[in-house]
Every structure is written in C-alpha cells, then in structure tokens.
Write a protein that binds this DNA or RNA. Structure first.
Lengths: 225, 225
DNA sequence: ATATGAATAAAACATTTGTTTGAAACAGTC
DNA sequence: GACTGTTTCAAACAAATGTTTTATTCATAT
C-alpha cells in the first residue's frame, strides 16, 4: 500500500516539472495546484508565494539528485584518474537524464538548464553548495589525468569542455531528437553516451597536453570574412 | 548622419533582446514597444500579434548571423579537413558570442538557447533551413578528419560533442563567469576558446578512431550506487 | 491642393493570474 | 466533548497584459 504524499510534497514534485517545462513566469500556480490536486491557496499557505515554491523546488531537485548520483566513487574504490573521470561523466548523465534523476519527471532537467541561462537569485545558494564543489572535483580529476602538466586555465577549459558535452545533451535534447534520432538522450543510451564523452574527453585532454608548446595564435592565421 | 531605423526594424531588434533575456511569456509587448520608442499597437499592426513578432525575430536572427559568419570558408581556400574544422568552430563562437553576432545585443544568444530547450512551432522552419545543414556540414568535416574511419553514429556523436562545447559557452555564460572568471566567453577570449575547443575536439575524434575496437560496454564494469 | 492608403497614437476591453480573505474541515490534546 | 492549532477550500480582489478600436498624422501620387 502506497501512502499518498502530503500536499506540500506533491506541490514540489509537480511544480518542478511544470516550472521546468514552461519557465517560472509562464507556469501558473493554478495549473500547478490543479495537477497536484491541491487548492490554489495551498501554494501561498505552504510557501508564502510563487517564488517561495520555486526556491523549495530548486533545493529539492539538487539535494536529491546529488544524493542519488554522487560524482565521486566510494572511497574504498580508490580508482585511477581515468576511472574517476568516467565515473564523474556517467554520474552526470544519469543525474540529468535518467528516470531516477531529473529526466524522469522530465521538466526538472530543463529547469536547471533555465537557471544556467538566467540564474535567479535563488540559484546563488545552489551554485555555492553544489556547482562550485563539482568544478573543484572535476578540476582535480582533469589535473590528475593530464599528469599534472596543465596550468589552471587549461584545466578549467577542459573541465568546461567535458561538462559542456554532458549538459548539451540535456539542454538540446529536443533538437537532437529531431536531427539525430539514434542518439536521443534517453535512458537506454546513457551508457553509450557516457562512454563516448569519456573517450572523446580523454583524447581531448591528451591532445591539449601534447600541444602545449604550440602558441594559441593559430586561429589568427586564417581569414574570417 | 545616421538614418533612424523604421519602427518595424526597431521592434525586431529590441524584441530579440528582450525575448532572449526574459523569455517569450515574461517579455511584455508594452516593454518592447516602449524601449523601441513605438506605440503598443505597433506590434499588432506590423506583426499581427506577439507571436508574429517573435517569428520575425527568429528569422531575422538566423539569417543575419549565418550571412555574417558562414560555417564554410570561401571555396578558393580549399582547406584541409582540420582547417575546416577550426573554421567551423570559430565561426560558431563568433556567431554566438561576438558583438557582431548574437552576443552584441546579448539577449539574442539566449533566445536561441531557449529555443533549443523548448522549441516553439516557429522553430521548425529554422531547424530545417539552418540547423540541419549545419549538422551535415560538420558531419562531413568530422568524417574527413577521421579519415573516413567512423560510422554514422559515431560521426554524429562527435559532432554533438563539438557543438555541445561551443553552445555550452553561450548557454552557461552566466555561471561560467561566476565560477571561472578568466574564461568568461567575452569578445577577447573567442580566439582562445575556439583554439581550445578545436584542439580538444581533434584529440577527441582521434581517440574515438583509435579505440574503435574497444566495445562500448566499458561503462558497465563499474559500480554505480 | 486633394485624395488615398499606410503608419502612429491614446484609450478602452477582456482575460489571465498571483494573492488574500474568511469560513469550514481536520487532527491531536486536555 | 470542548479547545486549539493546522490545513483545506471557494470566492473575491487587484494588478498586468495582449489585443482591439477609433481617431489622427504622414507620405505620396494625381
């Protein structure tokens, strides 16, 4: 027998989905309340106002997903750098796209993408609590994978390249589905995708290391109309 | 002496910025009209309704940027595959982030990002007219760079990895600025960024080619809680 | 100069939407 | 069983917003 969630929790779940799909402004409390089988006034009662609900959703989304899919393997599995990189990438894909992550109630992944685009004040906390630590973890991994040969700027560049690939799949899923059906970032493809991004990134990092001596002015040789 | 733009054009310019910054729903025709020094009714007069204005903005944004920054070098510069890849990546960065591209009136880049997240019906045209050809151009380049060794699925995967990196910089600019100040995707960094993504991607493609024999089940060896 | 059609302007209209209110239902405690 | 604090509910409110209407101005060709 499944115990029904209390109103407050139902609101947070549904709101995560609707806010994600439609954006903060376009999502209406009426629709959220209706789909959660709650009264319109419930939002104001439990969360003071629409923005309060949004804040609660944001916190809920991040805390759950990072608990379910941490970025670092358990300490006893003291993995070598490449394995750690692979683990990190796969965790990211599952967090973003799996049913148990933000893909299941599939508005939530989009909600985060929206925050990246236009961070609301409510996101400041999240950046410090969740995102910055991720940056540090990944930077350490990249540094190790490169054998300590990269300077901080290049480490970050590589980290952004890696995260960019992962997030792009979430973010652009609707378009990717349109023009490359086979690769749609759905549950069954997550292992394939993680594996691809892992290999691609490994090659990328190594190439950056190997071409460290080349100056960065290469670009300027070519004509750009 | 600079001739002032007619109302219709002013509306499109301003609307591109405001739609991008705030999203379709949150952007109000009142604000758009006011900032364009036009009457509220001008939107309905020139574009029938708010959505008509949006459609006009979308078409305007894409046609201008692909004209200004094409993805393919002029034919007389029959470049080798790697140069073409570099050219493609740099065009993409400049299109998205330069002042002359969508970064100048800086809401426009965001507007496109929003369309990726939640394509509106108006975007169908754009996908077919602009995006799908881009996919084909890049696929051909990747295929050539790999020496023709990659199957279609892997070619697309690599193409998505490349585009993902470029778009992520646009898309996540606000966050990147927060946690990695040096790399902010601003005008002065575009060459550095293009160069980085170019090298990283070249290494990525080559690694995918070199590890073609490895099965894709690697991921499944590791534990995921 | 005048007639004609396009463009602009101000005001009004009809909805939508976040929030508030006050009463009713409910749960637990003395 | 009465009391108290919490939660739910329906109705009403006030602000905002896309659109329409009607009148006026502007440009141009006859």
């Amino acid at each position: 027998m499944i115990k029904p969630l209390p109103t407050r929790e139902r609101l947070i779940d549904i709101a995560g989905d609707i806010f994600g799909r439609e954006g903060f402004k376009a999502a209406t409390v009426r629709k959220i309340a209706e789909e959660a089988n709650a009264n319109i006034a419930a939002v104001n009662y439990h969360f003071r106002d629409k923005e309060g609900l949004y804040r609660a959703v944001l916190e809920d989304i991040f805390s759950k997903a990072f608990q379910r899919f941490p970025s670092v393997p358990p300490p006893e599995a003291a993995a070598d750098p490449e394995k750690r990189l692979h683990f990190f990438i796969r965790a990211m894909f599952y967090r973003f796209l799996s049913r148990e992550g933000w893909g299941g109630l599939s508005g939530q992944g989009k909600l985060i993408a929206r925050e990246f685009l236009n961070p609301t004040p409510a996101f400041d906390n999240i950046v410090e609590t969740y995102i910055r630590p991720q940056k540090n973890i990944l930077s350490a991994i990249v540094s190790d994978v490169s054998g300590g040969k990269l300077d901080p700027d290049r480490i970050i560049s590589c980290a952004v390249s890696i995260i960019g690939q992962c997030i792009y799949y979430t973010f652009a899923a609707p378009i990717i589905e349109k023009i490359a059906e086979n690769l749609a970032p759905v549950e069954e493809n997550l292992d394939f995708l993680s594996d691809h991004v892992f290999r691609f990134s490994l090659g990328g990092i190594q190439r950056i290391v190997n071409t460290l001596h080349e100056n960065n002015g290469f670009a300027r040789q070519e004509a750009q109309p």
